[in-house]
Design a protein around this nucleic acid. Structure first.
Lengths: 124, 124
DNA sequence: TTCTTATGTGCAACTTAGTCGCATTTTATA
DNA sequence: TATAAAATGCGACTAAGTTGCACATAAGAA
């Protein structure tokens, strides 16, 4: 599925900003915040946040808050859990954990916090 | 364990602000943000954030970011997972879920996001 | 290809959570 | 009761995210 297809499928206009923004998110296999993205492309923050909101409404992108008060965004292609390290603040994607069920709830996202493998190793 | 004992055990000074702050957190069985707390007690936000940071360092309190860009705090008495509803933004404590293990990681906190029982019911 | 219109973009001003420096107050101890 | 270290409150600041508005652009019609 190309970026052009995704945009077309949702009946959104294909603009330069949208192509660039989805291009960056698609190319990186990790969640990115606005700060990460503005290092890579020159885009006004109002444009960034308006497009990101639209992508979230259309279920193209999903997001979560990390430990650093910033929101991180990624393509919703393969929904998966995340691990946020309290020590180094790194965000890892956990693509292979077994599904968890909570009776009565619909789970769309799981965030684990704690100490990642690297930091745990350094502590020992 | 009284608030006075907790403070003394960690070798912190027992001040009016600290007693009030821990009193509020102790009295409410749900995570609270600064906005929630300033409705209940009159405390400068610098004092709030400095004390909350100290309580976190001392493992008296823990915290997480919600969907609303605010950080929520609660006593660390009974560590447990949380459910944040994407629809109504409510935060629920999940005190009875079975423990999850991730090989190589130390998990200190789990946050589930999705649709809570109430909102799921309304959708149907 | 050009015209038209709805939609998107960029700018600047704004809001709000959270931080920091500093003068003053309070706690704990001698 | 005196003292020193630590906590508080204030005001100024930072940075994420939002909003209104004028201008630019995508996409379909003519």
């Amino acid at each position: 599925m190309t970026i052009e297809n995704i945009i077309e499928e949702k009946n959104l206009k294909l603009t330069v900003a949208r192509r660039e923004l989805l291009g960056i998110l698609h190319a990186h296999n990790r969640p990115l915040c606005f700060e990460d993205i503005k290092e890579k492309i020159n885009m006004d923050k109002a444009t960034f946040y308006r497009n990101i909101s639209k992508f979230e409404e259309e279920a193209i992108v999903n997001s979560f808050e990390s430990n650093d008060k910033k929101r991180y965004y990624e393509m919703q292609e393969f929904p998966h859990a995340h691990f946020i390290c309290n020590t180094c603040n790194a965000i890892e994607c956990l693509k292979n954990i077994e599904p968890i069920n909570l009776e009565g709830y619909i789970i769309t996202d799981i965030i684990f916090k704690g100490i990642c493998k690297g930091c745990k190793h350094e502590e020992e």
